[in-house]
Amino acid sequence: MSGSAIEVRNLSKTFGGGRSLFGTERHAVKAVDQVSLVLQRGETLAVVGESGSGKSTLARMLVGLEEPTFGDMQIAGRDAAALRRDGPRAFGKMVQYVFQDPVASLNPRKMIRQALEAPLKLMNGYDAGKRQARMAELLDAVQMPKDTLDRYPHEFSGGQAQRIAIARALAAEAEILILDEPVSALDVSVQAQVLLLLRDLKRQFGLSYLFISHDLAVVEAISDRVAVMHKGRLVEEAPTDQLFRAPRDPYTRQLLDSAPKLRKA
């Protein structure tokens, strides 16, 4: 466990089930079914699969937005359930979530200054002077101008909004980022820019990424290892080069056959 950022064992999530008020049995859906995987410190592990495969439900469990039906989960060697009981501050300082829709993830009524200040103040206890300095550093890290702070989310393009969302995640000073389809809503040229930014930030801040995607071409460009999900289960896991060169599972081969190829930078 000393080298792991995230480790899950037999993690499962079932929606529905049980009986209704009238005694009829409700249909149960296993969104995630006994998934076990490890994200090592400093690596990018991609979890890939088509819509409905369970990958986003897995991501939401990892950040506490969904409660597992059963299974064990550890974050940086600590029990995730115990971390959540310690409160959002303790959990948020270890792992942060970057959403698929960057504009929707930002409060439209608040300036970017407020979005970045909140974690700096509530999680890190920075005073006003230190918050101002840190916000300038974060904007520089994600390649956004200083006047970003005094503008609203609707004033930015999707790519710019995603850079801001990444800066907000970094403001908590967590070393683990769960990235749920972070470039799927962006134009192809902007996707490439954000992927390069994520790679640079990983080196700069010593981050570990769990990268959720349905797009194996994007995954090939950024990941160290790939875990493939299908119908809630993990069907294959391998280093990226190995998986692309010699996939074992028929479902993985199907995904590869349908994906355009990108060379890893």
Rank of each mutant, 00 (worst) to 15 (best):
M123W: 15
G158K: 05
L210F: 00
S208Q: 14
L262V: 13
G64I: 05
L186C: 15
T44M: 02
V95G: 06
Q34I: 04
Q74M: 07
I178G: 03
A76M: 12
V47N: 03
E155M: 14
S12Y: 00
F70H: 15
L138N: 02
E50Y: 06
K121S: 15
L197G: 10
T252W: 08
F70V: 05
R60Q: 12
Q162I: 03
S258P: 14
A128F: 05
I75G: 13
G16Y: 03
S56I: 09
Q100R: 06
R131T: 00
R151N: 01
L234P: 12
D140N: 15
F99Q: 12
M135W: 09
V142F: 07
R253Y: 06
E173G: 09
M144I: 01
R253C: 01
M111H: 09
A31M: 12
V29P: 06
E67T: 11
G158I: 04
G206V: 12
L262Y: 14
V8G: 01
L256E: 03
K231T: 01
L37P: 09
S20M: 11
E50H: 07
E25L: 08
K30W: 13
D101C: 02
L186R: 05
A227T: 13
L198Y: 13
K110P: 06
Q191I: 00
S20T: 15
P239F: 03
T24R: 13
D79L: 08
A133C: 13
R89W: 10
L207T: 03
Q96N: 11
V48D: 04
G158W: 05
I75K: 03
S208M: 03
E175C: 10
L116E: 07
R225P: 14
T148P: 05
D140Q: 15
A90G: 10
P102Y: 06
Q74L: 13
Y152I: 15
S213I: 05
R199F: 08
G42H: 10
N10K: 14
L198V: 09
R85L: 14
M123Y: 11
A227C: 04
R78C: 09
M111W: 11
E181L: 04
M94K: 14
M135E: 03
S208H: 04
D147W: 03
A76F: 00
Y251T: 11
M123C: 05
G125Y: 04
Y126Q: 07
F211V: 15
L177V: 06
I166W: 04
R248V: 15
F156L: 09
Q100P: 00
E155C: 10
G158S: 01
E173C: 06
V226H: 05
E175P: 00
E25D: 06
K130T: 13
P119G: 10
R84G: 07
R26A: 14
E43D: 12
G158C: 03
K261R: 11
K146C: 06
K30R: 12
L210P: 09
K130D: 10
T240M: 00
G23D: 07
A80E: 01
V47C: 13
M229R: 02
S2Y: 14
V29E: 04
G232P: 08
A169E: 05
E66D: 08
A259W: 00
S20D: 13
V194P: 04
S258W: 02
A238I: 05
